[in-house]
C-alpha cells in the first residue's frame, strides 16, 4: 500500500480530469434514467472504445476516434428511437465484437484495448483535462436548457406537438451531448467506469432526493465522492482504476439497501 502517491503532482491532472467527469456523467445519467435509456450509456461507451482503438490503429488521436464513434452512435440512437433498448444492444454487440477483433489482431490495439477496458486514468494528460473542462463548461448549461423538454417528453409527451412545436431537435441535441460526454469519459476512465458513473449515482439519487433539482446535486456529489474514493483505493493498493470504481459504486448502492425492483 502506498497512499503517499495521492500527493504526487504526477497524479493531479488525472485526478482532476476524472473528478470533472465524475460530476458530469451522473447529470447525464439522471436524464437517461428518466427516459429509460440508461443502457444507451453502455452502448455509447462501447462504441467510443471501439472508435478509439480504430483511430489508434489508423494513426489518429484516440480521443478523436472515440468522440466520432460516439457521435455515430448518438445519431443512430436518434434514428432508431423506436427500436429502444434493442438498438443499444445491437450497438454494444457491434462495438464489442469490432473492438475485441482489433485487440486480437493488432499488437498496438492490444495494449490500448486493455487500458480502455481496465481504465487507464493515470495516463490521461493535459489534453484530456482541457477536454473535460470544456465539456463541463458547455454541457452543464446545455443540460439546464434541455431539462424542461426532457422532463416534458417523459411526463407530457404531447406537450410540444399540441402547441405546434417540434421537440425532436432538442432531444437529439441531448443524445449528442450524452454521446460526447460518455466518449470523453470512456477514453479517460475506461468503459465500465464511465458506465458506472452514468448509472449508479442517479440510481441512488432517484431513491433519496426530495426534488429533481436536489437529485441532480445529489447524483453529482455521489459521483465525485465515489470517484475520489475509487481513485485513492486503486492508487494506494496498486489496482486498475476501472474495476475498483465499479465495485466501490456498486457497494455504495448495496449500502443504501436499494430494492431490486427499483433498478
Amino acid at each position: 500500500m502506498n497512499f503517499d502517491l495521492l500527493l504526487d503532482p504526477l497524479f493531479r491532472v488525472p485526478f482532476l480530469t476524472g473528478l470533472l467527469l465524475a460530476a458530469l456523467l451522473p447529470l447525464i445519467g439522471m436524464y437517461l434514467r428518466l427516459r429509460h435509456e440508461w443502457l444507451a450509456a453502455l452502448a455509447f461507451a462501447q462504441m467510443a472504445s471501439a472508435g478509439a482503438l480504430l483511430a489508434m490503429v489508423a494513426g489518429w488521436p484516440m480521443i478523436l476516434g472515440g468522440v466520432l464513434a460516439a457521435l455515430v452512435a448518438a445519431l443512430a440512437k436518434g434514428l432508431m428511437a423506436r427500436a429502444g433498448a434493442g438498438a443499444y444492444a445491437l450497438m454494444m454487440l457491434l462495438a464489442w465484437g469490432g473492438g475485441v477483433l482489433l485487440v486480437a489482431n493488432h499488437p498496438l490495439a492490444e495494449q490500448a484495448g486493455h487500458a480502455l477496458f481496465d481504465g487507464q486514468l493515470y495516463f490521461t494528460g493535459d489534453g484530456h483535462l482541457l477536454a473535460a473542462g470544456i465539456a463541463c463548461a458547455v454541457v452543464v448549461p446545455l443540460l439546464s436548457w434541455l431539462s424542461r423538454p426532457l422532463l416534458l417528453g417523459r411526463l407530457f409527451p404531447e406537450f410540444y406537438r399540441a402547441r405546434g412545436l417540434d421537440a425532436r431537435p432538442r432531444l437529439m441535441l441531448f443524445d449528442l451531448i450524452a454521446g460526447l460526454s460518455v466518449a470523453l469519459a470512456t477514453v479517460s476512465l475506461g468503459v465500465m467506469a464511465a458506465f458506472a458513473l452514468v448509472f449508479v449515482p442517479p440510481l441512488v439519487a432517484y431513491r433519496f432526493a426530495r426534488s429533481w433539482r436536489a437529485g441532480m446535486v445529489l447524483s453529482a456529489v455521489i459521483g465525485m465522492v465515489g470517484y475520489s474514493v475509487s481513485f485513492a483505493v486503486s492508487l494506494g493498493l496498486d489496482q486498475p482504476f476501472g474495476p475498483v470504481c465499479a465495485v466501490v459504486l456498486v457497494m455504495l448502492v448495496a449500502s443504501t439497501s436499494l430494492d431490486s425492483y427499483r433498478m
Binding site: R148, F159, A205, S211
Partner: peptide, 23 residues
C-alpha cells in the same frame, strides 16, 4: 391536451411544484 393514461412516475424525484412549472 390532457391525454388518457400516464407514464408510471414511481421513483422519479419530482415535486408537485416542479410538475406544474413544466407546463
Amino acid at each position: 391536451h390532457q391525454a388518457q393514461g400516464f407514464d408510471d412516475l414511481r421513483g422519479v424525484p419530482l415535486t408537485g411544484h416542479e410538475l406544474l412549472g413544466l407546463t
